[in-house]
Computed example of a mutant assay.
Amino acid sequence: MSNIQILVGSTLGGTEYVAEAIQPLIEEAGFDSEIQFEPDLNSLSLQSEQVWLICLSTHGAGDYPDNFKPFVEQLQQVNAAISDVKYGIIGIGDSSYDTFCEAAKNIDYLLEEMAAVRVGDRLEVDVMDYPTPEDRVLDWIPSWIEDLTQIVEN
């Protein structure tokens, strides 16, 4: 089965907890996984099948967290389609801000423009409804894994 790279963009650390909570479920489903708290495109091959699960909070006025900005800048330098990349997105945000999950939406649009293939729907977790975001994510991840499994097997 595929190796899933869990790419984390976090300002205060809550998104890191989400990544750590979902990793055991991913591995129970038969996938290998690696959490990258400082994502670096240089450590990921764009020449072969890739699966990225992006766990991303929004910082400030809809910005990427500082640890994720270099990764986005690297992606923006790629002048080719990355159609071998399959990805999922978990956005963590606060709906009391008008930039709710803006970073997750922006990376989704960027990857779509680059011809990457999104698996399932983008999950947007509102910390107003889920003060412990991993609770919502743990409900969602089985369906994402099922969607991924169907794509990988075809």
Rank of each mutant, 00 (worst) to 15 (best):
V117E: 04
E27C: 04
I26A: 01
G91R: 05
D66I: 07
D32G: 15
D32S: 15
V117Y: 12
S43Y: 09
G62D: 13
V119D: 04
R118Y: 06
A29M: 08
C55V: 02
A104T: 01
F100H: 12
E113W: 11
Y97I: 13
Q77H: 14
A80D: 07
V78Q: 15
L53W: 00
F71A: 00
C55Y: 08
N67I: 03
Y64E: 10
L53Q: 02
L75R: 07
D40G: 02
L75C: 11
E27F: 06
V125H: 02
K69W: 05
L41T: 06
I35T: 13
D94R: 09
F37G: 06
K105M: 08
V72E: 06
H59W: 13
D66Y: 08
H59S: 13
T99G: 13
E27D: 03
A29Q: 07
V127M: 12
Y109Q: 14
S48R: 13
F31W: 08
G30L: 06
I92T: 09
N79H: 13
A81V: 15
V125F: 01
P70F: 08
L56Q: 01
D121N: 13
P65Y: 04
K69H: 11
D129G: 02
G30N: 06
A103R: 04
I54G: 00
V125M: 09
L123T: 04
S45C: 09
E27Q: 12
F31V: 02
Y109F: 15
Y97R: 08
A116W: 00
A80Y: 03
E124H: 07
V127W: 05
S57E: 14
S48H: 12
V72L: 12
S96C: 09
Q47V: 00
V51Q: 07
E38N: 14
D121E: 09
Y109V: 12
D129Q: 10
C55D: 00
P70D: 02
Y64P: 11
V78H: 14
A61H: 11
D40R: 07
A104Y: 01
I89L: 07
A61T: 13
I35M: 10
G120Y: 00
V72F: 04
S57T: 10
E28P: 00
V119T: 03
E124I: 07
W52P: 02
D108K: 04
Q77G: 15
F100Q: 10
L41D: 03
T58A: 09
A116F: 01
F68N: 06
D63A: 13
D126R: 00
L111R: 05
S45K: 03
V78I: 14
N67S: 02
P39D: 01
S33Q: 07
N67C: 03
V127K: 04
R118N: 00
A29P: 07
D98I: 15
S45L: 06
M114Y: 05
V117M: 08
V85S: 08
Q74I: 05
Q74D: 10
F71Y: 05
I82N: 03
F71N: 11
F100M: 11
D66R: 02
T58K: 05
G60V: 00
V51R: 01
I107Y: 06
E34L: 15
G60R: 07
Y64M: 08
G120H: 04
A104L: 02
A103G: 03
A115S: 13
E113Q: 11
Q74F: 12
Q74A: 14
L41W: 03
I26F: 00
G91V: 02
V117T: 11
Q50C: 05
T99S: 11
